[in-house]
Simulated assay, not measured.
Amino acid sequence: MPNHISVVRAKSIAGLMTATSLALVLSGCGATYDVTSPRSARNQASADAKNALSPVDCRKLKCVALTFDGGPSKTTPPLLDILKKEKVHATFFMQGRNHITKYPDVVRRIAAEGHELANHTWSHKVLTKLKPAEIRAELTPVQDEIAKLTGHKPVLMRPPQGRTDEKVSKVCRELGLAQVLWSVTAKDYLTTDSALIEKRVLDQAERDGIILLHDLHKGTVPAVPGIIAGLKKRGYTIVTVSQLLAPAKTEPGMVYRP
């Protein structure tokens, strides 16, 4: 699922700061919006920050974030069993219609077991094709439903197909949502071959990467134990997106992309 984004310019940060923000343009459109990498976000955070979001420090550790899109679904509880056994936490970008509404107890369990809950729209429409009011209508109900079930609204979202632009970013800013893309995809929506899914993830994984998987597809959950084992064998610490960024705090509207 390509994100159809091209880099057109970079902003320089003086002194000890690194370049943390790029102006991106959606192909064929002149609107710009801000993007940064997990490493740049961490580097820009205050050097003496004391309140990191997690006990892990990805400035020192070789971290990779594990994320799942499109759930919850009937395959999510077995996935949660695996993650609990392996003592791994992930970020779940959840859909509203036929997912959050159908599996509210699973949403509660995801939160109770320490995973990160995030927004993947109500009905998986491509947001760049919508008007601002329609974008808001895709994001707001997910915020409200997750808050109703867990007591907390997400601060992260993932645009369907990774497609974003200035219009989407503006609505996300207003709703307090940062946008999260990815660097690793197994294209598990195209195959049920768990061994292939595992291989694709391990072949692409790099430090500060963000792995995209879909817990609702048949071959994905059976691939997760091998993915976790393979990443750990290579020295990776598996974290949530917010843990990957810490001590930086997510900036609403910003696009985070390795």
Rank of each mutant, 00 (worst) to 15 (best):
D144F: 00
E116V: 04
K129Q: 15
G114M: 11
L149H: 04
E116S: 03
R158K: 07
P132H: 02
R200E: 12
P141G: 03
V168D: 06
V171N: 02
T164F: 10
I135W: 10
V180P: 09
P141R: 05
L175G: 07
D203R: 05
A133E: 15
L177W: 05
D188N: 07
K125D: 13
A118M: 00
P141F: 07
S123A: 11
A186P: 07
L177V: 05
D165H: 09
L127P: 13
A133G: 15
T121C: 00
V184G: 06
P159D: 08
A178R: 01
K187H: 14
T185R: 12
H120I: 08
E198H: 12
L156I: 03
A111N: 00
N119Y: 05
R207M: 12
E198T: 15
H120D: 10
S194N: 04
V171W: 12
V171F: 09
D208R: 02
A118I: 02
N119Q: 05
E166S: 14
E113K: 03
G209F: 10
L139A: 04
R207Y: 10
A147L: 03
A133M: 07
D193P: 09
R109L: 13
V184P: 03
K170I: 08
V171R: 04
K131G: 09
G114D: 11
R109P: 06
